[in-house]
Design a protein around this nucleic acid. Sequence first.
DNA 1: ACGCAAAGTTGCGTGCACGCAACTTTAGGC
DNA 2: GCCTAAAGTTGCGTGCACGCAACTTTGCGT
Lengths: 192, 192
Amino acid sequence: MESLRERKKQATRVALQEAALRLALRKGPENVRVEEIAEAVGVSPRTYNNYFPSREHAIVAALTAARAPEIPPGVPLADGIIDAVVGYYTDPGEAMLIIVTNPALRACYAEAVTGIEGPVAAAITARGADPRTAEVLAAAVAAAARVALRRWVQPAGVPGLVMVSGGLPELIRAALAPLAPALAAAKAHSVA
Amino acid sequence: MESLRERKKQATRVALQEAALRLALRKGPENVRVEEIAEAVGVSPRTYNNYFPSREHAIVAALTAARAPEIPPGVPLADGIIDAVVGYYTDPGEAMLIIVTNPALRACYAEAVTGIEGPVAAAITARGADPRTAEVLAAAVAAAARVALRRWVQPAGVPGLVMVSGGLPELIRAALAPLAPALAAAKAHSVA
DNA sequence: ACGCAAAGTTGCGTGCACGCAACTTTAGGC
DNA sequence: GCCTAAAGTTGCGTGCACGCAACTTTGCGT
């Protein structure tokens, strides 16, 4: 059902996301006031907060909106999940730089990683695993993805340590690899 | 080194934690103002925020302060970690009820679960695993613990579903179980 | 077409988080 | 003991998040 209400709400939501991202790209995320975003869309600041719970959420939503990981059903579970997560994070254009630059945006983006838990859990369940097991493993996958993001951003921490920081896809694969045995076991458990 | 500075800082920090918890228990967490906590300790509100980044953090800190999970070195890795995490969450007296009642405190407490990642990662590394693997697995363990906490709080979600919500320890064991294969593999990998 | 109930928007008031620039306290060399 | 630098505290100002109570718009039955 696409009532007028729904369409209007969605329109202002999208407008707010786009305005927030545009302003952040132009002036830097620090220098964007909620009032500006609201004004650019023709809405009150109070209404902005009815749509987004913080100043950062609209910007992050502009990047994560309408993006859901797709997990291929044929391949082994671990491989499918890894590819899906890698694909999920491998579009971001220049906007990604804005996000990793700003601490508040980084935190908000890391929080948004939770969004992959639902689809991942569904995929694991679809393979026959117990839903509660799937929930835990999906949370673990999201946690590993956050670790990968953290490593990607970090300037390599202690100077003496390895500077692996290659591409984000490689970091994600490396971070998810230790979870593969648990994913395989979940599948096996479903068979038993 | 216990300089006068350090001792004073620690004293006010502890005083703030205790005051925050005491007031929260007496009046309910919602009705405690930062100004009150600061005044109870004899410090300015601004100083409160130099110690804690939010109103909730002091209350949560009062419960998580000086608590580090102890992971026995002898037993199998997964068992040791599970027992340690269970023990970590199995003291909380009546104060726990205050926390699970309030959404903001719940969020803050869940965030504090990150505190176990360090010790857990250290224990995994101590068994010979790669530090980067240990970091990922520790994050996964923390994520599983958060799932257990979520399940413990939730009023059993959909009415038709199982109402497992027994004790928190059982929930934690159930949530960590799916990660056991990954923990075992990390240890095996170190041996190979 | 009418009118009522549900949903959405807005202004207001309050409390919180925090950068900044004074000001005060502590540490340590002399 | 004295003086200076480092560390800590405080007041102030600003912007944000959100509960609340009007007010406006939309949906829908008649």
